[in-house]
Simulated assay, not measured.
Amino acid sequence: MSDDKSTQGNVERRQQILEAALKVFSTKGFHKATNKDIAQAAGGISPGLIYWYFKDKEDLFASLVRERAQVLQLADRSEEFMSLPPREAFYRLGQAYLSIFHNPGNVAFFRIMLSEASRFPKMGEMFYRGVGRKIFGLVNGYLQHQVELGVLRPHDTAVASRSFVGMFMVQMLARDALLQPEAQGLSDEQILSTVIDLFLHGLEKPQA
Rank of each mutant, 00 (worst) to 15 (best):
D4A: 05
T7S: 01
G9M: 02
N10C: 10
N10L: 12
R13W: 01
R14E: 13
I17K: 02
I17V: 06
I17Y: 03
V24I: 15
G29W: 11
F30G: 14
T34W: 00
A41S: 14
G43T: 09
G44I: 03
S46H: 13
L49C: 04
Y51E: 10
Y53M: 08
K55S: 05
D56R: 12
D56K: 09
K57A: 08
A62G: 02
A62T: 09
L64H: 10
V65I: 12
R66F: 01
L74F: 07
D76S: 13
S78M: 09
E79G: 05
P85W: 08
P85G: 07
P86I: 11
E88H: 15
G94M: 11
A96K: 14
A96H: 15
A108V: 04
A108L: 12
F110I: 02
R111H: 01
I112A: 14
I112N: 07
S115R: 15
P121Q: 13
F127C: 15
Y128R: 14
Y128T: 13
G132N: 12
R133S: 12
I135D: 06
G137E: 05
Y142V: 06
Q144C: 08
H145M: 03
H145L: 06
Q146D: 06
G150W: 09
G150L: 09
L152K: 00
P154F: 03
P154G: 04
T157L: 01
A158Q: 11
A158E: 13
V159I: 10
V165Y: 03
G166A: 12
G166P: 12
F168W: 12
Q171T: 06
L173N: 08
L173S: 09
A174K: 05
R175E: 13
L178P: 00
Q180G: 00
A183E: 01
G185H: 06
G185Y: 02
S187K: 05
S187G: 04
E189V: 10
Q190G: 01
L192K: 03
S193W: 01
D197W: 03
L200I: 06
H201A: 07
G202W: 00
E204C: 11
